[in-house]
Amino acid sequence: MAYPTQDALYDVAHSEVHSNHLLTASGDGSLRLYDVSLTPEFPIATFQEHSREAFACSWNLTSKATFASSSWDGNVKIWNPERQQSLLTLPTHSCTYSTQWSPHTDGMLSAVCSDSHLRVWDLRTPASANNHLILQIPIHSAPFSVSNAMLQPTFPPSEALTHDWNKYRQGVLATAGVDRIIRTFDIRQPKGPLQLLQGHGYAVRKITWSPHLPDLLLSASYDMTCRVWTDGGGDQRKPAAELGNMGRHTEFATGVDWCLFGNEGWAASCGWDERVCVWDVRAFMP
């Protein structure tokens, strides 16, 4: 089944309340909800408030009644599929490439922006002056280090393109972007990143934590590879390391995700070579 659209689509999310519903984020700033059981090629609902490209959409994983979207216009918006207007607008004042709901805490969501900041909102807090914003971490800040003797590198700010919440360790996030480094953060220790995972040759477009293991991470990058990483599982003594490298894509790899229902370790990735690769992560781990 195909649904032609006028504009590029940047993200897609499955509805958590209806098995046939699918949400897309479009280049014209609109969000469209499709019902895949229906034949007509029109969306069943269109949500148009963003004034520029909508880059990400994410369904609330805990309360399931809402979804969030982020856009180049510098806003994150919370929506209910049954309402035409957004429920809430959370300004970031910066092009926001990625927004994600926390899988652990209801009403908690995060976003990473072009201004090199990770923002976390808690919708349970009162909407006073700070507009639910509870955390704003500079992604480029010096890493949280265990060793006193080591020199601390400083990084220039760079655009963050993607982030994801760890599915097992509450409060742990990973971010990545133009500076090619994947960083893990603990929002309880917002001083700086816990781990820096370096290896990609160009900007990292998408990262996703494993649904099966607490320390495993997949990334897709403009260096045309997808890589598997471990961040040590939160244990400072265990090293963060690259575990595998999938280089089958012949153009930029821009999306990757794990298989939730198949075998543990299956993954799918897509790229500008107009292909979707379905692969077993374990086959690429030496």
């Binding site: 910066s94 072009s114 700070n130 700010p157 760079s158």
Partner: peptide, 16 residues
């Protein structure tokens, strides 16, 4: 407000 919504308006990078 200022501690949380610190405006990074001094320098814009990338898409901004």
């Amino acid at each position: 407000e200022e501690s949380l919504i610190q405006e990074p308006s001094q320098m814009k990078i990338g898409s901004d």
